[in-house]
Each structure stands twice: as structure tokens, then as C-alpha cells.
Write a protein that binds this DNA or RNA. Structure first.
Length: 216
DNA sequence: CGTAGACCTGAATA
DNA sequence: TTATTCAGGTCTA
């Protein structure tokens, strides 16, 4: 058994990996670059209200769907500012336009290998390995995808210290860690990542600077 | 191939 | 109170 994973299973019992719509998942993660989770959800909420179609009302409140690609493609500077997305707003608009110009065959990417799907997605502007992996794991059912964000990177540096030779998370190092995770967690690597991510966010978020906290 | 900086913005920290 | 850092990356020089 793996002690790291075992401990996180205790902390986040009941956590699940979702099956979301590919387009919405991709667009949402475009908004996540160097951003905080709170601001991301606030921005997505703003976009739905400003550019999305109303889908129902309850107790006097109206609910909106995530905007269509066509609407996202029309975003203007005011949307970038009011949403709080900043430079990510322009990325989002560009990705929407790319998706319209060259629509991915999601079903093909779903049945393709994780590596094939990831490389195809990472071929788009503003879509790197991390965001591509998020789409693979959360929307395309590739359970072996391991999105390596800043949190997982911090953990990986400790878990695989002797194997890592770069100071920053380069594409080559990203692929190396991906391989190491796969070897350790096999087909459940994606789930392992999800648990490790939440474990770190909940128990280590601030205790990091200044000293090596105990843990995985 | 690896390392810095840039890129919006505001809450948190110094 | 004002200044610097940082947040679920990616791109460029």
C-alpha cells in the first residue's frame, strides 16, 4: 500500500473526480492561469451572467448557463476588466475562437490514448500540458492523466527529489513527473493527484514558507 | 533544453 | 499605512 495516498483518503473521504463538458472545462481552466480559485469561480459566474443564456429561475433568482463559444468570442476589454480575468480574458477569447475555427473531435480524443489527447489539446495557443491534462482527467475520462499544478509540483519535488534536475517545471520535467506518478499509482494516477491536491490545499496551504512541514 | 520576466488584479502578508 | 508577494500557467527572449 501507499502511505501518502492512504493518508489523503482519510482526509478527503467522499471526494470524486467529475465528468464535465470538455468545452466548458477547457475554458474554465484557461481562466486559472496564475489565479486564485475564488477569483476563478467569481469570473466564471460573471461570464455566465453577462454572456450566458438564462436557464431557469428559483426563488426570484435567475440562473445562467456557461456562455457559448460564439459569445465568448465576442468578449471585449470591458469584460476582461469587469470579470477580473485580466490578461486571461484575452486568452479565453482566443481559445473560444480557436475552438470555433477548428472544433476538436471530443469523442475521438476520449477514445484516444491519454498521451494523444493531451498532445492534441496542448497544440492550441494558451493550452499547455497542465490545462490539457485537466481536460483529459475531468472531461475526457482519462483516469491516468495527472495535472501538475503548483501544488502537485511542490509535492513532486519532495516525493521524487532525487529524480528531478530542474528548478522550474519545464515540459521535460512535467513529462518525467507524469511518468513517475504513473509508475507509482498506475491507472489511478489521476485520482491520486486529485486527493494529493486537496490534501495539500487543506492541510499545508500556508505552513509551507519558512520550513519543511511534515507530510508526503 | 533550462532560466527569467511578463501578463491583470486584489486579498493577504510584511 | 504603503510595499511586496502570490494565486489550480503559458509564452517569449
Amino acid at each position: 500500500t501507499d502511505t501518502h495516498l492512504a493518508r489523503t483518503l482519510e482526509v478527503a473521504r467522499g471526494l470524486r473526480v467529475l465528468a464535465q463538458e470538455p468545452t466548458e472545462t477547457l475554458c474554465s481552466y484557461i481562466c486559472s492561469a496564475a489565479n486564485s480559485v475564488d477569483r476563478i469561480s467569481a469570473a466564471v459566474g460573471y461570464l455566465a451572467q453577462e454572456l450566458g443564456e438564462p436557464i431557469g429561475a428559483l426563488d426570484g433568482a435567475t440562473y445562467f448557463a456557461f456562455p457559448s463559444l460564439e459569445r465568448l468570442a465576442t468578449m471585449r476589454k470591458e469584460h476582461f476588466e469587469e470579470s477580473g480575468l485580466g490578461f486571461r480574458g484575452e486568452h479565453l477569447r482566443d481559445v473560444a475562437r480557436q475552438l470555433i475555427e477548428r472544433p476538436p473531435d471530443w469523442e475521438r480524443l476520449r477514445s484516444a490514448t491519454h498521451d494523444e489527447a493531451r498532445e492534441a489539446l496542448a497544440g492550441m495557443r494558451w493550452v499547455g500540458l497542465k490545462i490539457a491534462d485537466c481536460v483529459c482527467l475531468f472531461a475526457l475520462g482519462h483516469d491516468d492523466a495527472v495535472p501538475i499544478d503548483t501544488h502537485v509540483w511542490a509535492l513532486a519535488k519532495r516525493i521524487f527529489r532525487s529524480e528531478i534536475r530542474t528548478r522550474s517545471l519545464t515540459p521535460a520535467t512535467y513529462r518525467l513527473i507524469d511518468r513517475l506518478f504513473s509508475e507509482r499509482y498506475g491507472r489511478w494516477a489521476g485520482w491520486a493527484q486529485e486527493y494529493l491536491y486537496h490534501w495539500r490545499r487543506q492541510t499545508m496551504a500556508s505552513a509551507e514558507r519558512g520550513g519543511q512541514p511534515s507530510g508526503p
